[in-house]
Design a protein around this nucleic acid. Sequence first.
DNA 1: CTTGACAATGGACACTTGTTCACCTAAACA
DNA 2: TGTTTAGGTGAACAAGTGTCCATTGTCAAG
Lengths: 224, 224
Amino acid sequence: MDTCSPKQVNTMKDLTTRQQEILTFIEHYEWRNGYWPSIREIQERFNFKSTNAVMGHLRALERKEVIERIPGQARTFRINHPDAPEMNEIPEDATEVVDIPVMGDIAAGYPDRVEPAGEIGRLQVDIANAGYSSRRRSFALQVRGDSMVDAEIYEGDMVIIEPRDPYDGDIVAALIDGETTLKRYMKKGNEPPYLKAENKFYPELYPINELTVQGVAKAVVRSL
Amino acid sequence: MDTCSPKQVNTMKDLTTRQQEILTFIEHYEWRNGYWPSIREIQERFNFKSTNAVMGHLRALERKEVIERIPGQARTFRINHPDAPEMNEIPEDATEVVDIPVMGDIAAGYPDRVEPAGEIGRLQVDIANAGYSSRRRSFALQVRGDSMVDAEIYEGDMVIIEPRDPYDGDIVAALIDGETTLKRYMKKGNEPPYLKAENKFYPELYPINELTVQGVAKAVVRSL
DNA sequence: CTTGACAATGGACACTTGTTCACCTAAACA
DNA sequence: TGTTTAGGTGAACAAGTGTCCATTGTCAAG
């Protein structure tokens, strides 16, 4: 990809005591309330006199890639759990197989508009083999079309999509001209992002007006 | 106001098409993003020209007790899922056993400050027997003291607490004078709420300064 | 015909909340 | 000794966001 380190520098785990306290409070707050705390609520919990104390810790946690945030949006945290199965209802005896909903094929339109109950099936995934990090919010789409054949993704494959913002080089499910397709997301520096098909017969550039990335492909499952 | 019954008029289930769409979008948004949408994000999704269109629907959903909101707070929804067996009717087929963390005994102080990892044990609950609605955020506390003996809750019992705002008559885990105890939450009309012990040797009224309700007791489990 | 529930527009207001700038203290380090 | 890093104060700004008012229209029930 690129020579100079993209994003794996931080050890991801050496938090200071204070940072760990902040993180624990945030997680616990969400666990109790169902939504995330505001900066000032964190401030009050720790008796900080300034919101900036919280900001410093949040920036540190972001730098260490422990949390993600959406700039300017209220109460929007995302915890990057180090593939810890802990929190949720994953029993200890469970195998490494999770099942996730299949929400439709990849040209079905907005997954936003597909109800969770409207799934068309379920897919069992071995997370040890697929490199799939067990988390909620993930879903699967069945591939239609051949825009990614050069990336060894073929029609009929099941692609596991994790809804999140893409990084450069990620394969994403994106909405273009009213249709959802699988493309590689390219963003270099400050230039506007573009999408690239992994098929030499397809044009490399796609219009980015109204680009909607529905999620990042995390794994491909092909039934044989 | 109203001449008759306080709040069980709405059948809780007859939503209009639009209201159902709004609710579905909110649920689905949270499922995808991990946090709740803002009013204006809902507005944009449905191409409303005014945020007030959303407000109307949210008010309707609140009135029908399908959702709960914290006034003035951004992105703070709570969905009252109808699939939750509400203490009274028990799904006949279910013999599902869920296990939930035991966070400490009921005089341990703020569960807020207990880490999820700091649990002291786990409790297996048969939801068919306990009427317990499987949901995250619930936890268990072990009863110390005899303030609720008249409600057949005795020392050593495990009380399953669901963190939420209480209604009149709910048995709650509440913080009084630095100690967490189990009491019945009483609120009549517009009068300030008070707490009542279910033990005739205890005073009926408790100071409500700094009242912190940690959650509502949903079930009691007693090992024999 | 009137009433009321439902749905939506348009504009405005005010609180909530994320963000930033300047500045400070203490410990670790080379 | 100077520098860096973690942690924090204080004040202010601006965008995000919930809320409210007045108004319009539709449609079914009384």
